[in-house]
């Protein structure tokens, strides 16, 4: 589904990603971990097509199509969804109007019913829909909002950038269960890439692969046992 070949990325002439390779097949769940500033979030932004970053070399393929120079909206339409670490706040734009702007169907009643259903699943109060987008929302509410958008957009590849930060245990359980359900619904078609710092995420989601990223490169890949090693020894063991 997603292939990243020998990727070099810079911002303001500073090289951040230095020869990264990654392959995510249909139905797979990958977890990327690494110390702060190692390039995890940059990787997620570059897949989503953030114009600020410049691809110096290498290519990103999604379903065998090069998406290096595509605009973020076109990448999104191909089926890639990025859940932001720090979602933006937009004053004056209600949640409902925002969701309506990217929904394809135009029957208002159906849209509302569909959104209400998903809100119930995620324990989001319906009143939130009339509030301004993320304005005054707690960290957890913002993350729930991201997952709500994911459930509506139904992407093929979901990238979750630090979804577990700022969430209480119950909310985290609820969100990860919803993500699991979403992936399992069409198991062979939907993939997941999770960027995280917390090792206890494997209690809720079982990954196929775990990668450690350091200095813009994947330095170690393995299965879920790798997370336990990271928990035990930290990153230093793998860096040295």
């Amino acid at each position: 589904m997603l292939k990243i070949k020998n990727l070099y990325v810079s911002i303001n002439k500073n090289l951040i990603i230095k020869g990264l390779n990654l392959k995510i097949k249909k139905g797979e769940i990958h977890i990327i971990m690494g110390p702060n500033g190692s390039g995890k979030s940059t990787l997620s932004y570059i897949i989503a097509g953030k114009p600020k970053y410049k691809i110096e070399d290498g290519e990103i393929l999604f379903n065998n199509k090069i998406i290096n120079n595509l605009k973020p909206d076109k990448i999104s339409k191909l089926g890639i969804f990025l859940s932001f670490q720090n979602p933006v706040e937009i004053d004056g734009l209600s949640m409902y109007n925002f969701i309506k702007s990217f929904i394809k169907k135009k029957n208002n009643n159906n849209i509302l019913k569909n959104i209400y259903k998903k809100c119930e699943k995620l324990n989001i109060n319906k009143k939130y829909l009339s509030r301004y987008f993320n304005l005054g929302f707690s960290g957890g509410e913002k993350k729930k909002n991201e997952i709500l958008q994911m459930l509506i957009l139904k992407p093929k590849l979901t990238i979750l950038d630090e979804i577990d930060s700022g969430l209480d245990i119950d909310s985290l359980k609820n969100i990860l269960n919803n993500i699991k359900q979403y992936i399992n619904k069409k198991k062979k078609k939907r993939s997941l890439l999770i960027i995280t710092h917390y090792t206890n995420i494997i209690n809720y989601i079982k990954p196929n692969f775990v990668h450690i990223i350091y200095d813009g490169k994947i330095i170690k890949s393995g299965n879920k046992k790798l997370i336990k090693k990271i928990e035990k020894y930290g990153y230093n063991k793998f860096i040295n």
Binding site: A48, G49, K50, P51, K52, K71, P72, D73, I75, S76, K77, F81, L82, F84, P87, V88, S101, F102, Q149, L153
Partner: peptide, 10 residues
């Protein structure tokens, strides 16, 4: 960028 990443054109 956030809005674009939801499939809305520039």
């Amino acid at each position: 960028f956030y809005l674009q990443s939801r499939g809305i054109p520039l």
